[in-house]
Design a protein around this nucleic acid. Structure first.
Lengths: 343, 343
DNA sequence: CTGAAAGCGCTAACAG
DNA sequence: CTGTTAGCGCTTTCAG
């Protein structure tokens, strides 16, 4: 494997010039540049990543941190980031909480990152504890850190997210509009601001449609997972009158509900309509296909990347929290007449 | 951020000793070790990854290469690798073909890896071209490369995989056993050895159960994807007699079939039974839950990691291709009486 | 515009 | 057992 020296020798010049060519630094004659590029091509030379990063200020690498790679939202999220990074000549490095939810691990990982002089960090951290968030905040003083779909007031963390209030409001309004008066809600991790926003949207939509709010139409889950949605749906079915629609705080909860109803042989949407929120890929694979609210994941991830890459440590004027709009997606789980489709 | 020098000073010693302590090298007094560890803890020192890797022979990092992060098998695969690596103090670095299927990209990535002095590479490469495979082989001369679920004869590549012939044989035998005589098969990427093995298993199982083989019961897909399964199922439905069962070359194809039948309002399994192969997480979320063949992913990934970490370049005696067994998973898509379950 | 040389932070070989 | 030091391959001044 070749070193920059080899290239220099091959091109009949010095390492300094080769380095300049590689990094697109000004001050090299065209002739020189051509010679060097030719040598690089001939030797199939690629700079050693480690040597380079040790010296350079930027590693052209940003960290991507997720609690769990299994979550269905992950592929879209990661792909979005990767695609954008690639356009900019950067590369992601993935850190994941992995299988073990051991609480030490995330902190460990954070230390790991510190020493890779990353140019920044994009973090998706549904429901992590304060210790973690604080450590993150300390890191954010040294490099740009963008939180995905969760914002922190009074924190150095940047964020990209959606208007969860409006998103859920539009979903529930839609259900009301098609005639539902008894709409149950499956909530999870109630302490998160984003969960609260959605719940507020739900309540306000009820109010604006003259539907009385009933506490017993809400059930709480420990986490946003299919299993939790599945297990908790029975609570809202104890009501009388029975809800005619169930909306999940996200798609996985709604899919859990769908599975539970399926087991009871309750027809969706004829007996009970079901709706989700998040638009994960899975939502079009379940039966019936799930109505939901789509988030502009690609825009959000692209923006997250931009926030980092273009982060100017000096400027305080940057907008720290970016919020995007959502879009209603109607499918068969609320509307029998909508067509089947597959992306 | 601290350097090893700072630690040395803080502990009142020299960098050499600190380095030894950090790397667990023999020849440090206990007293010294304690002082150093204390200093490290106090300063919250973490070695710079780049400086370290530039010098060391091992980067304690292995590359994981997948064509597409979206594939439903990915989470299990990656998690398995990560879990095992973590136990061994290693870390994965993910390279993915990403959104763009531009054929240059994979080769690009390969170059990228070369310069990170990885300790090895685990590659999942459904249907990549020869140019890629050859480049991979060249890399395999310098570091251990393990191919996942695809083996190459006469190649320096190691591999872990399953006995696809037996796996598919057992699935089709099961269908025959429960009374199916007209079993269609959805195949994909027929040129892959692993696809051929499955198809052989299918044919042999038919033969052993006195079921005549009919070419028109087989349909070919361009790739292992839901969409392809969905689009191609109609071909096998043109047969007379109509198949009473359809088996997919993998779960995604089978799920595609399921969706197609759903659209035609053909009941599964009453009218046509459907079976998959692969046991991805999705298979229990579709309706009806999909019967399939489970691969021991965790064992396979663990073994892949072991092959790399314990790779002794000197020894030629290592078994280069490891094959695991499979397990039948019966669910409602072939057997109405099986219980609903959710992991 | 080009080349020489000084480190980046660390490991490993070597001397004490 | 401890400390000193020569690089790893690269970028980046700084002279020519």
């Amino acid at each position: 494997v070749f070193r920059i020296q080899d290239v220099a020798k091959h091109a009949g010049t010095s390492v300094g010039s080769v380095s300049k060519v590689i990094n697109g630094v000004e001050g090299v004659s065209d002739k020189m540049r051509d010679k060097v590029l030719k040598a690089i091509a001939e030797l199939d030379y690629h700079p050693n990543v480690y040597a380079r990063n040790m010296r350079a200020k930027s590693s052209k690498t940003i960290g991507v941190f997720v609690p769990l790679i299994n979550d269905p939202y992950f592929p879209q999220f990661y792909n979005g980031i990767e695609t954008k990074l690639e356009q900019l000549g950067y590369m992601p490095i993935l850190f994941s909480g992995s299988s073990k939810t051991s609480s030490e691990r995330p902190l460990d990982l954070l230390s790991q990152m510190m020493n890779r002089n990353l140019d920044g960090l994009i973090v998706s951290t549904y429901g992590w504890d304060n210790e973690f968030i604080e450590k993150l905040a300390r890191i954010a003083e040294k490099m740009p850190v963008v939180s995905y779909k969760r914002k922190f007031t009074d924190s150095p963390l940047l964020s990209v997210g959606v208007n969860d209030y409006e998103g859920m409001y539009s979903a529930v309004s839609y259900l009301a509009r098609i005639g539902h008066k008894h709409i149950a809600y499956i909530n999870a991790t109630a302490q998160l601001e984003t969960s609260q926003d959605r719940l507020r949207g739900y309540k306000q939509a009820l109010a604006d449609n003259d539907i009385p709010f009933r506490e017993s139409y809400i059930t709480e889950c420990a986490s946003y997972s299919i299993r939790e949605g599945y297990l908790n749906t029975r609570h809202v079915l104890r009501n009388s009158p029975l809800p005619t629609a169930i909306i999940g705080g996200n798609d996985t909860l709604a899919i859990g509900a769908l599975k539970y109803l399926e087991e009871l042989q309750i027809r969706v949407p004829q007996d009970i309509a079901v709706m989700g929120y998040d638009e994960i890929y899975l939502s079009q694979l379940v039966t019936p296909q799930l109505s939901t609210v789509a988030l502009p994941v690609e825009q959000m991830t692209a923006k997250a990347v931009e926030l980092i890459v273009s982060a100017d440590p000096a400027s305080e004027s940057v907008q720290r929290d970016l919020t995007f709009g959502t879009e209603l997606v109607v499918r068969r789980s609320t509307d029998l007449t909508s067509p089947f489709s597959l992306n």
